[in-house]
Design a protein around this nucleic acid. Structure first.
Lengths: 218, 218, 218, 218
DNA sequence: AATGAATGAGGTTTCATTCAT
DNA sequence: GATGAATGAAACCTCATTCAT
């Protein structure tokens, strides 16, 4: 166990982060304690702080690596597509992705909402920026791949599009649950306040893409 | 001073909430302490808790009353308009409102992002729901007024539209600052990550409204 | 309980310090924990840190106030004596005091041994120096009173004499227990290493005083 | 490198202890960390614990071997002296030794002050007692040699005298620095609190020896 | 009603010590 | 035997919240 390779170190960090992620699936950032993460990870509290300076750093890493993985997968997915993809096909792809993000990656979106108001205040800047740099590069590669497959969209626009996609989901998620309180369903339903995340996100994104491509074709 | 009138009590609560609001203009929820709010309000720390059960309650109140005021003003504004308003005029109105929210009411949007993940866990449910009930009724009145002025949009749709509007702004705000860290500008700019809140929000809302009205006209 | 008077605050601090003192009677500085002090004082751990920045501060206070009390009592005792006291009577007085320090105030001497190597590194400098200033003034008054009663000894010399007295006791105490290990008596007795604190301290002080007064009379 | 000779093992232990000693010249026991000792020794942190069960063991060894060397040297020095040494010559010898201890072996004296309150609680008893046994025997030999050279002092008395000598120096050292705080000189000088270690120790020892020999001659 | 002292939960930090390799 | 990662104990610290007056 003498000297850990970078890989081993990374794996351990991932194990810890993974535990945090599991806790975050069902609980809020504020209600998760470092002691819980340590206990559930099967490591000592001291070890936690060997790997992550602060609680915020753990979640910042989850955010960055979550998006990193997501973007990498998107690149893979895209590279499997035929060389030319129509605007409609691309829109459908984006819509499917939206559904996927919502169904399977909602923690990512929840983490997004914490980034500026909660995490950045106490996360390590250098680590965060290093991660963000890598993520940006991945995002650029993704944009590149998309622009190669889809006429009417540049690398920059494609890269930016995923920011907008996350914004739409994240924003709708922020506004969700007005018919609940702290995840408890309320009897007097505030029907018109109610967000149906999947439906509303897809619709909003559809409108956005339609508007976007319409503006390009002019 | 042993027994306060309802008015005195409300005024004091408002003074406290107002102080919290001022602090929230420039700082994050987590970095604002009850001691600071007490000191800046000119009351004792204990007094805070005579008026608000928890820190979260203060901010929940700011959220609810902020939207309450905003919706009331919208109703007023709308009632001044001619009896019929075209879709285009209505869209412009919404865009102006978006700009207004961003420029002058950004705290409202920031509070929105805190509601579910931070505030609800520790805010008083009954008070929150009472406020939300009032807000919902106001929102319904607003929807009513709008549906009376604008063909093609029902009361429910109008009411819901403001949720979507907030979602769009809130979501984009969540994704802002990827070219900053904790409000410090970064030298290597992540250009394609960068959100221009006003431009992007207006564009997204425009696309949304276009799509929305297009779907209605079919 | 609203605003504590200086006196109340001092009393609370004393209660805490007193608990620490009791623990220190039978245990070492290192083995006493802040949690123990809190629990035994009947106050919360937070309160401890309201009153004492660090564990070392608690013990520094014990040292300073212990000597403060001791010197004050000495002044009182001395003022009760006839206006002139012979060298021999004074020597006897010092020897009795030595016995008293050893029997009843040994913690003071033990604290002395911690001061420089342990406490100063983490005790609050300003507080410590304020306490030391007061102590110095008391020591000066004590020296003054003594010099008034005893020919052949100046204020400065008298004041300094108590430092030497503590040094002798403290030094012998440091060398004690070489026939023990961690307060457990050993079977193979290192007879010539053995310090009999009272006997040795009194003898050493006697020699010192004899030498001191002899040097004055020349 | 799997099996070390006894010599290799001893040398490594000495290298570690030596490093600890060097650090202790300028810093306190508490502020020296095992990591620092490891790094400065050029060995791994774990290796430290192959050679010394605890941090306290390292310093206990320094104390014991330091005194061991010191006593051995004294025996050597004494054996070089003429067969009969006058009380005055012996006193001068002791005073020179005092100066030597203070100037060149002050760490020994500082370690003495740690022994009971800090080290014994966590040092290995058997090792410590073995070392102390050897030291005691050396001290007895030293006492023997002295008693052979100096009339009026027995082996036991001579052996014990070195304990008193260390006590005097150690005690005065404990009381030093009342005109400093954590080794920083203070501007308002507490003149009468000030210990001049060499002067005060020599004077005190002189008085002690004078008194001691006076009591023998009666 | 108003207050600030008291509280305790939990994050952070340091470090001697243990342990797997 | 050597190593550094892992560990846990305890200091330290902040802060929302409680409570006695």
């Amino acid at each position: 166990m003498n000297i850990l390779t970078e890989k081993q170190r990374t794996e351990k960090a991932e194990k810890i982060a993974d535990t945090a992620l599991q806790l975050f699936q069902t609980r809020s950032f504020g209600s998760i304690t470092m002691s819980q993460i340590a206990a559930k990870s099967g490591v000592g509290k001291g070890t936690l702080f060997n790997y992550f300076e602060t609680k915020e750093n753990i979640f910042m890493r989850l955010l960055l690596s979550g998006y990193q993985d997501y973007f990498e997968n998107l690149i893979q997915d895209f590279q499997k597509l035929p060389s030319q993809v129509s605007v409609e096909e691309f829109s459908n792809f984006m819509i499917n992705q939206t559904q996927y993000l919502i169904r399977d990656k909602s923690v990512l979106v929840r983490l997004n909402a914490l980034r500026a108001p909660v995490l950045e205040g106490r996360a390590n800047m250098d680590q965060t920026l290093a991660g963000r740099q890598v993520l940006y590069e991945t995002s650029q590669r993704l944009g590149q791949v998309i622009s190669e497959h889809v006429t009417f969209i540049s690398k920059s626009e494609a890269s930016h599009l995923f920011i907008v996609q996350s914004a739409i989901i994240s924003g709708l998620m922020n506004m969700m649950g007005l018919d609940e309180f702290d995840h408890e369903q309320l009897s007097p339903k505030f029907t018109d306040f109610k967000i149906n995340l999947e439906t509303d996100a897809i619709q909003t994104l559809k409108f956005y893409l339609t508007g976007f491509f319409a503006s390009k074709k002019q």
